[in-house]
Design a protein around this nucleic acid. Structure first.
Lengths: 215, 215, 215, 215
DNA sequence: AATGAATGAGTATTCATTCAT
DNA sequence: AATGAATGAATACTCATTCAT
């Protein structure tokens, strides 16, 4: 997908990438602790390992940092999920794996994802669409996963059902990230994955019009 | 539940309540539009219909306003849900009704709920627990609803299953509020409720160890 | 003339006037020494005797201070000149007096006038017209003075001649303010006034179409 | 006149001159539009066609650019005026020509002259005298022109009168540049020249102690 | 000689909070 | 109880200047 351009004064593309990586890394840590608004640009520069002047050689406004952070988080998550899509597919087992994988990513990147969800609103009307589009793409990955199962006659679902289930998987993954504080008292991550997957598949197969559900 | 005390200089309790209601009403509108951080205390005072000096007669810090707003939103939602709990219960039909009702509330209060979720992090370590507790209470309502069904032999679930399902219902409700921008393109609210409930009940009844699922 | 409004947060008009007077007084001193651009808003606030926060209760931007300063200078000069217009008129003697008076004002307010001329360019497109209009008004005063002499048959000039002479008087007055560094080495203020007036009247009377010039 | 030295790191004198010419050309354009303070060194470098690093090989500080610009403007104007001095002289006609010529130069270089007058104050105490000296030289040219007329018995003036008239010519020329916004509404440049010259000569000849004025 | 990345002091402006009236 | 003027710490962003390559 075409990215929103964040203008840098520095020309050397490789350097821009390097400095921005430093910047994002530092910013995520800070945003986790204090949120976007309570983090100052000087803190970001310092955490990134360079001066405030240098920071502004690579961005135009503080909001650019937020956009860069959001963009990078999505890229990380997407990349991880993409791998699942490329493996053996169309089996309920691969669906289970995909879900489990996603939940694990959400657990690992909990802080980042939390940051993103609480700060996207601070993105300008300009940057927001790019971020939302990315999110749709991720939901799309689960739709594809389900589609493959249908093509492989493991499931039988309408288009509408596919969409809502993909959404649900996505949201339940985020839920672990968001509400870990509550859920952890009840389950470990693996128990949570087990339960959610089981419940999901229970519903899924129950959805099916006719008899031959597997298992 | 015992509320966290927000200190006021003014003694007249009735007046305090009245002024705070004005304050919350104004603040919610502003937070919806610009978020907590971009809203100034002067704007809040103005929207509430009094001066900045007066505002500070009823709160200690800006964050108090946020707490008051969050608290008030929960109260509204809770109140609405409470009504369902008091009606005829223990039937799957009443569960359906409870879910539908919750989703409708989430739709109506979408902006408020969104505000709350994006700003809770800004609450001090002091206020946060009170808000999270409220949230647990709301999940608890769905647990109760499910419990009633079990007692009434309409469902058969383990404690663990009850908890996760209550969480799921709660999160799916919020999901409509949060992700309405995406979901609306696919479904109306009623279609969404219908789909989610059907899917939920499908899974729910499939969960049941043995035969006699109703319907 | 209708003034350009400079918005203040403070309502009490009397207080606004008082604070702005303090502000202008301080700012003029600073602008004299270091110019508009090299003067910081904090310095202006300090020189005015209040805090930076208070400064911004009475203006919107730094440029507002410059506008206020320019406006105030014109008001001072205009007021002084206005007095001449109201005295006995229509004689060459009153014209001489008016010129002398203006040159004296320019000498006294040399610093202020210098400030104004070197900084007007920094005024936004918004404020500039108001300042230029004031200047035209001042030139207009000399036109009136000349007109009176004509009506009184002391002079005989075309409209075009009136205009250019009024301009010349005005500019020669400013010239003393601007170029005092050079002129002072040659003449005292009174000598300068004497010379310029004599030369002016020499030309003026020479302009006259017919014979009987005075002297 | 000995120029104030502006230190360059580069040794090749020819190159220094070339680069500085580029620099001045670019800077004048920028100063016209935005003034000295609002123009950045990067913009100057870019307008000159080289990098910020290179800029600083040819100057020490930003103020050096301003000095160079002022110096160059004076050189241009002086050069143009010098030509008049070398032609047939001592006649009132040549004086008229000299004035007209100067006014035309002021019209053509209006922007540059305006820049200079509004920014000289920004020159350090170090550079200012050099610029003021140049100005005195230009006034001196008119004194010479008048002197020639006296030697040629076309005029009869005291030293003091010569000085003030030279000043007046100079200032009236600048006046056209400075106040063109107002004067243009009343006269074309040629009308203005005609009027001012006529008026000047009227006064001039009136100054004369006794009879034999020409024309 | 030329480049342009790095620096950080400097600046206008905002805004939560206080307090005298 | 209500007001709103005063405060000043805090903060995003700029830009002249340096220096390693």
């Amino acid at each position: 997908m075409m990215k929103r351009e964040v203008k840098a004064s520095v020309k050397d593309e490789r350097l821009v990438q390097k400095r921005r990586d430093q910047m994002i890394k530092g910013a995520v840590q800070l945003f986790k602790q204090k949120g976007f608004h309570r983090t100052t640009t000087r803190e970001i520069a310092k955490a990134a390992g360079f001066s405030i002047g240098t920071l502004y050689e690579y961005i135009r406004t503080k909001e650019d940092v937020l956009y860069l952070v959001c963009d990078s988080i999505y890229d990380h998550v997407s990349e991880r999920l993409q791998q699942d899509l490329e493996r053996k597919q169309g089996t309920l087992e691969s669906l289970r794996q995909g879900i489990a994988n996603f939940f694990h990513v959400m657990d690992e990147m909990q802080a980042e994802v939390l940051v993103m969800y609480q700060e996207v609103k601070s993105l300008s009307k300009d940057a927001l669409p790019y971020v939302l589009k990315k999110e749709m793409e991720m939901v799309g990955m689960f739709e594809t996963l389900l589609q493959k199962c249908i093509e492989n006659h493991q499931l039988s679902l309408t288009e509408t059902q596919i969409q809502i289930i993909a959404h649900n998987i996505f949201v339940q993954g985020q839920m672990w990230g968001f509400r870990r504080w509550a859920l952890r008292k009840l389950y470990t991550l693996d128990e949570y994955i087990e339960l959610q997957t089981e419940f999901l598949l229970a519903g899924l197969t129950k959805f099916q019009p006719k008899g031959e559900q597997n298992e």
